[in-house]
């Protein structure tokens, strides 16, 4: 299931709802991403981040996330997939993304969750702009994220 929303979500409630009703599920892996309070490109330098705004491409976002979910389901035996991604203005410490996978065994749950985050970061059309005391700055994409996605090439 894919959800793209401005509102916050409750990870505990999401996890509880995600894990009920399917007796074949033996393991769930969940990743929760938060907004950091420093500039991702220059940690330790420059201004702290007061907030960021996540822009996205409505329609394409859902389409690309659905494609990433389909790829994960093709690669691992999954009983359920949940991707929640927020957009709009977010402050440090706020939840930004949740990915959860459920499988009969832990290995598939761990690997597919990792895969979903790596692919999501390079394929889902979101862009961060950081609001700092020194002005607004679009976040540049990182080579490390491309490398992380490529480890799943086959």
């Amino acid at each position: 299931m894919i959800r793209v929303q401005a509102e916050d979500f409750d990870p505990g409630a999401e996890l509880a709802a995600f894990s009920t009703g399917n007796g074949k599920v033996g393991g769930i892996c969940m990743f929760l991403g938060l907004v950091r309070d420093y500039l991702g490109d220059h940690p330790g330098q420059g201004a702290g981040v007061n907030a960021m705004t996540l822009e996205h491409y409505p329609g394409m976002t859902e389409r690309q996330l659905a494609a990433v979910e389909a790829e994960a389901r093709d690669r691992w035996p999954l009983h359920a997939v949940l991707i929640i991604h927020r957009h709009g203005r977010l402050e440090p410490g706020e939840r930004i993304v949740l990915v959860a996978t459920a499988s009969s065994h832990r290995e598939a749950a761990f690997q597919s969750c990792h895969f979903l985050m790596d692919w999501l970061k390079t394929k889902a059309p979101f862009w961060k702009i950081e609001h700092t005391d020194q002005g607004d700055q679009w976040v540049a994409a990182k080579e490390a994220d491309d490398d992380a996605a490529r480890r799943w090439d086959r």
């Binding site: 996540l54 491409y57 389409r63 991604h85 999501l120 970061k121 059309p125 862009w127 976040v139 994409a141």
Partner: peptide, 26 residues
Amino acid sequence: NQDYVGWDHPITPADEVAFFPPVTGG
């Protein structure tokens, strides 16, 4: 039309074409 393509991809007047920087979500 909301799928990634290259610079030699065909386009028609009915298409939706979007340009953007490398993505930075997650």
